[in-house]
Design a protein around this nucleic acid. Structure first.
Lengths: 98, 98
DNA sequence: CTGAAATGTAGTCGTTCGACTACTTTAGGA
DNA sequence: TCCTAAAGTAGTCGAACGACTACATTTCAG
């Protein structure tokens, strides 16, 4: 989903938190922030610190993606487990045993 | 590209800014922030305010996407101009004139 | 190589942050 | 309905923010 404003962050954090069935208190501990801060961020606080927001998204297993002119689709080293053809690997192994 | 830390934001903002050939000063005006702030954010300042970061991304025409368990792919009203088959529309119009 | 533009650094100042504690209000299961 | 946990509100306090001005450093076209 698109994130355009701090309110969007708040909605998404709340939604994800509820989907996981955890309380603000628990999320606060997991993200290493105060519970009060979670309350404010879920309400869309525009001046919250990015670092903490990212920590919180990470604690919820949410991932952020950025795109636009001049932005590479992936960083090198990103998506490290991409499209491995397991059959091919096994076949190769079979042909050159230890 | 994935954004995991404030440094990632900094890198992307700088890259997009350069891709557009504008200076920190110009970006600062476009995003309604101080130039000094741009300097710090491009360096990965973790305590910058989310609101301003979003303003800056918008000023650069960058878009942020969030995904994960419990997050809808799109909000209703998002992606309003999706996949219109122009031919089909014209064909329909041809069959039922004003 | 030179010099102007772009970028980075330093310090001031009023404002706001976020952790914390302590209450109040809301909500939902027994 | 009641009653406990969850969620929201209030106030304090040290720390950091971000705009600003002024200066230093880097970059790169000519």
């Amino acid at each position: 989903m698109q994130v355009r404003t701090p309110v969007d962050f708040g909605l998404m954090i709340r939604q994800a938190r509820r989907a996981r069935g955890i309380t603000q208190q628990e999320l606060a501990r997991a993200a290493a922030v105060g519970r009060q801060w979670i309350v404010e961020v879920e309400a869309g606080k525009p001046r919250a610190e990015v670092g903490r927001v990212l920590q919180t998204l990470a604690a919820l297993d949410l991932s952020l993606t950025i795109h636009g002119e001049g932005i590479p689709e992936l960083r090198e080293s990103e998506d490290p487990a991409e499209d491995i053809d397991l059959d091919a690997v096994l076949e190769a192994h079979r042909r050159t045993p230890p």
